[in-house]
Design a binder for these strands. Sequence first.
DNA 1: TATTGTTATACTCTATAACTATA
DNA 2: TATAGTTATAGAGTATAACAATA
Lengths: 159, 159
Amino acid sequence: MTTAPLDTLDLEARAHSEHAHELRLWLRLLTCSQLIEKRVRTGLREQFDTTLPRFDLMAQLERHPAGLKMKELSHRLMVTGGNVTGITDQLVTEGLVERTEVEGDRRAFRVRLTERGRVSFADMAQHHEQWIVEAFDGLGSREIDHLYKLLGKVKGGLK
Amino acid sequence: MTTAPLDTLDLEARAHSEHAHELRLWLRLLTCSQLIEKRVRTGLREQFDTTLPRFDLMAQLERHPAGLKMKELSHRLMVTGGNVTGITDQLVTEGLVERTEVEGDRRAFRVRLTERGRVSFADMAQHHEQWIVEAFDGLGSREIDHLYKLLGKVKGGLK
DNA sequence: TATTGTTATACTCTATAACTATA
DNA sequence: TATAGTTATAGAGTATAACAATA
């Protein structure tokens, strides 16, 4: 049984009612996520003059060297198409990604990293990894695994 | 031991490298958080024509009937002062919160819910709770507790 | 007709820094 | 001098809807 803190100094000061456990869990999940995300955003901005959505887009492309269509990117990044166009435009301007033709469908593009984009991403990813490792510093590897599995159950229920 | 999925359709397609476990955990945490947050934002917008930051501010005030100073709100909501002023202004205009004087310090205000704000918040909070309960539907109460504790460790390491 | 992607628009949230008033 | 709060600004991120080109 978990005992509720009487009060805290952040978002978690919100839980009450009969479903207090679910609410507290959500607020803590949100707080953790926001704190880590804030650290990542700050790092990306200060050290690489870029943003999280741009990093995320490049990360998707790094996993798919052949490239991804705009619509696929939109789906994976969980944002609407117009936004992907905007972010892609920026990255194209900076020479980090490129639009290539899709044979058989002249409406679509396949977006992929340029060589420069790959080099740039590798550099950022290395630092990004460090920030994340630091964020979970307090957990042992079994706890990391366990947390991963529990969140998998959450994620599965959300689909 | 957790086995990495070969590929997924969302942000989690990003993990690699020697610290793959930490990275995967972060991406899953982020995905869960984003999905739930998206549901909450959509619900607040569609059913109450409001936003998450506004809801969060009101939630803080509901926990502190005597009111909170702008600076305290800023700290608890993890945003800078200017933003709190903006959101508070909106809520004051709509008659949901009010600024009251702090005796002994004429620079400061104490912001608190109006009666109308309390009623409005209670309504929103009820629906909000439902969305959250649904989000964790797949978990048993012991898993909820366990997840809460593990995230507590994460949170503790971030401070 | 449906789909891919772009454009245009508007709005929310955010950080930063300069500013006012008070301590 | 320091602190509480506001104002002004600029930028990031988002959703929506109308649009063009192609399927």
